[in-house]
Design a protein around this nucleic acid. Sequence first.
DNA 1: CAGCGCGGTGAGAGCGCTCTCGCCCCCTCT
DNA 2: AGAGGGGGCGAGAGCGCTCTCACCGCGCTG
Lengths: 345, 345
Amino acid sequence: MTDTAPRPTLEAVAARAGVSRATVSRVVNGGDGVRDVLVERVRKAVEELGYVPNQAARSLVTRRHDAIAVVVAEPETRVFADPFFALQLRGISKELTAHDNQLVLLLTEGRDDHARVGRYLAGGHVDGALVFSLHLDDPLPELTQRAGIPTVFGGRPGWSGDRRDVVYVDSDNRGGARDAVRHLAGLGRTRIAHITGPLDQTSAVDRLDGYRDVMVDADPRLIAESDFTPAGGEQAMRELLGRCPDVDAVFAANDLMASGALRVLRASGRRVPDDVAVIGFDDMRPVAEQTDPPLTTVRQDIEEMGRLMARLLLRGLDRDAPREGVGAPQSSVVLPTTLVRRGSA
Amino acid sequence: MTDTAPRPTLEAVAARAGVSRATVSRVVNGGDGVRDVLVERVRKAVEELGYVPNQAARSLVTRRHDAIAVVVAEPETRVFADPFFALQLRGISKELTAHDNQLVLLLTEGRDDHARVGRYLAGGHVDGALVFSLHLDDPLPELTQRAGIPTVFGGRPGWSGDRRDVVYVDSDNRGGARDAVRHLAGLGRTRIAHITGPLDQTSAVDRLDGYRDVMVDADPRLIAESDFTPAGGEQAMRELLGRCPDVDAVFAANDLMASGALRVLRASGRRVPDDVAVIGFDDMRPVAEQTDPPLTTVRQDIEEMGRLMARLLLRGLDRDAPREGVGAPQSSVVLPTTLVRRGSA
DNA sequence: CAGCGCGGTGAGAGCGCTCTCGCCCCCTCT
DNA sequence: AGAGGGGGCGAGAGCGCTCTCACCGCGCTG
C-alpha cells in the first residue's frame, strides 16, 4: 500500500516531446491533424513517462464521464442472489468495456438509499443509467427521469404502459409462458395449473397473462400465487393438490418454484412427468439440471439482455453523432425465449 | 431522455446566498467555522437551486474520488454465477455506501483486459481496489501493486505467502474442512474421501489441506481432484467408487460437487447418509437445501467477508487520520466457518 | 508575383471546485 | 483605552485537461 508517485501531466509530456499541450492532447485523443513525426514523438514521450490522462480533469471540461450506473433495488437482490442478475451484469460489463465505459454499481436498500441514488445520478458522475426495477410501485424510474439522465430499464417497468419514452429490455415473458402452456396442452394435459411469482413484478404478471392466453377459461383454482422461492413453490403446490387433486400439469413461473413443486409432487406419490408434467421458467442451470427429473423450462438469454441494455443506452447517448440525435429515445426490445425440453415435461 | 439542464455551480449558490464561493464550499463540506446565520442561508440557496457538487471538479483538486474498484477476473465469473459473489458484492456495497464511496465494477476476461484494468487503476479513477483473484498465477495482484493503489484481496492470493504487505479476507477454509472431516470421523466413518476443487485456487488447496490435517495418512486413492462443478463432482464420485468401493463418507470441496456426488451415489444404489455420508462446503442455499437428502455443509459468512474487505480497505485509506497512518497495511482477516447439519451427514 | 486558402501548431481561456492567505472586525487582556 | 489575538470571511491561485482561435508557412490560383 505505497503512496502513488506524482503522476506525469500533459504538460510534462509536452515538454519532453518538445511540443505544446494542445498537440499532446490531440495525439492522446486520436491524433488527427498532427504530423506523423510529432505523433510519434508524443507517443514516445507518453510511453517513457507512463502518462495516463487524469479523468477528473478531462470530465471537468468535456462533461463526459464514460461511466454508466447500474442501479439495482433491494427487492431485486433476491434476483441478484441468483445467477440471473450476475449474468446480466456480465453482459452489461462486456458491452460497456467494449466501448470504454466504466460500470458503477449502485445497490439500494430502502427509501433513504433512493435519495442517495437520486443525488448520485443528479450529481453528474455518470452519463447514463441502467436500472433494474421490476416492481409496480418502484420510485426509481421516476427518479432517473427527474435527474434527467438517460436510462434503460431491465425488465418492463410497472408503470411504463402510458409512457412512450421509457426504454427497456425484457424477455418475452408472456410469449414464453404461452409456449410452455401450449407444450403441456400438446402433451394432452388438460388440468394445467400455474404457480405465479409475486404479482407486483411485471415478469410474474406477464407470465400469468401468457398462461391465461392459452388457458382462456381456466379454472381459477388452478392458479396459485406465490413468490419465486422454492419454499413458496412447495406451498403453492400443496394448495393446488388440495384444491385440484386431478391436476396433470404445472407451469411454474420460475425454476426455483418448479423445483419446490417437484418435491411436493413426489412426496404426494405422483410421478413426474407421467402423472404430472412440470415446466419452469428461466433455465437456471444449477437448479434446472439438478432436479429429479431435470426440469423442462423456458430459457431466456440473460447475458444478451444485459448486453442489449448497455448497447441501447450507449446508442442513446450517441456521443459522436449529430447533435440532434442526442438522447433520442431508442425503442424497447423484447427478447424471444425458447423452450428447453428436459425430463419433467 | 431529456438533456440535463445546466447544473448550478458553487458560484451561483454563492451569489444567491450573498457570500463567497469559499464560504459555500465550507458549508457544503461540513460547515465548520461559518456562522450559523450564513450556514443557514447557504443551505437554503443550495436547496432552492438544487445544487449538487461537481465531483470531477472536486476530485481534480482533492485527488480523492470516493470510489473503489472491485475487480473480478474471468475465471471467477463461475464463482460469480453463483450467489457467492453476489453476496460478497452486497456486503462490499453496504460498507462502501455507508462511507459514501462508490463501487466501480471491473470484470475482466483474458489478458487484454488485464492491461485495461491496469491502466484504469493507474489512471487514478479510484482510491483503492478490492480484488478477487484466487488463482495461483494470477497477474492481478502484481498489477495493483505496480499501479501503487491500495488493495485488499478476496481470498488468499496464491503467491502471498512471502509477502507481508498483502492484505486479504478469507474464510477459514482449512479449519472448515477439518471440522467437516472430523464430523464424519465422529460419525464413525473411516473411509472418508475428498473431492477437491481446482488446485490452482487457494480455497481448494486449503480445503484439501484441512482434509489432510485430519486424515493424516489417508489412502491417496481417497482423494479425487475435480473442478467445483456438479458434473465434475459426478465424475470424481464415479472414480472414487471405482477405486474404493468401500468408501463410507465424502467431503466435497463445495456444494455443487457434493450435489453431483449425491446423484452418483444414489445411482450406484448407495443410501445417503446410511451407507455414505456426504458433506459439502459453502452452504449455497439453493443447492444445499434442495438436494436429496439436504446437504450437510460448511457455511461461511460471505456477505460479512465482503463487508470486511471494504472496511479494511477504507481503513487503510485512512483519509482523515494523521498523515503517517495513511496507507498503513492492515492485517489480513480469516473468518470462521460453521458446520451446518442437514440430512446428508 | 501578389494573394488566398488551408493544414498544422501554439497560446490562452476556462471547466467547477478547494485551500491557502490575508484582511477585517470584535473581543479580551493589561 | 490601546494593543494584541483570534475567529470568520473573501480573494485568488491553481488542479490537469480541452478547445477555440489566431498564427504561421506552405502551395496554389489568377
